[in-house]
């Protein structure tokens, strides 16, 4: 199978109408089909990575548990927008896993470099 570069940009909080979950599903499917994939969380999207999320409190699956598995699926890199973290009073230690904290310049470079960009 041929391979292309796909960037997924996720901009919404974890429980908002399933957008975050749909983004994760699409991302993982592309990775499973051996495509080069990146995930960039920006805006409220950075909240998806907050540690201590517990979906069971509202009778839901904890979607965040997927994130540590992304590397296993072959996702190249998970990036988090620095400004979005800062404007929400968050630091790297508040996140559930090690990710790349990056500026909008990196997002710009990825958007231009990837063959396809999907914003969720």
């Amino acid at each position: 199978m041929t391979s292309k570069k796909f960037l997924f940009v996720s901009t919404r909080a974890p429980w908002q109408q399933g957008h975050a979950a749909a983004c994760a599903d699409a991302l993982m499917t592309h990775a499973v089909f051996e495509q080069e994939t990146w995930l960039f969380l920006t805006g409220d999207g950075v909240l998806q990575l907050l540690d201590k999320q517990d979906g069971s409190a509202i009778g839901q699956k904890t979607m965040a548990k997927l994130f540590p598995a992304l590397e296993v699926y072959g996702v190249r890199e998970v990036l988090v927008d620095m400004e979005s973290l800062e404007s929400r009073g968050l630091v790297e230690a508040d996140l559930m896993m090690k990710v790349t904290i990056a500026g909008k310049d990196r997002m710009k470079a990825l958007i231009h470099e990837c063959d396809q960009v999907l914003v969720f």
Binding site: K4, T29, Q35, Q116
Partner: peptide, 20 residues
């Protein structure tokens, strides 16, 4: 069908456009 059809379309189509 499944999301695999989206991957395939991403590889085959000249342009992909998302209406959300």
């Amino acid at each position: 069908s499944g999301l695999g059809q989206l991957v395939e379309a991403g590889l085959e189509a000249d342009r992909v456009i998302n209406f959300a």
